[in-house]
Amino acid sequence: MKNEWPLWEVFIRGQHGLAHRHVGSLHAPDAEMAIRHARDVYTRRNEGVSIWVVKASDIAASAPGEKEPLFDPSNAKIYRHPTFYDIPDEVGHM
């Protein structure tokens, strides 16, 4: 529909979180109103300290069909995980 407001993706930085996390989406005519709507829809229970909104159409995403070539090759490469070190006891919990 031509008259429908564009879709915005909403990211909220939580009370204790360092990074903004995707929480959902909503419709709004522009960024200012998208932030207001996000405040009303997604922070009613005191969830956030900061809001980002971005037009859903501005997000470039990887194609689900390319999942295999993109992600499978890293599957068997356990040497990429830093699990081959001996950590001295004195270091304690890491």
Partner: peptide, 8 residues
């Protein structure tokens, strides 16, 4: 008129 306004 719209969901977002309803909640607001």
């Amino acid at each position: 008129p719209i969901l977002e306004e309803d909640i607001a």
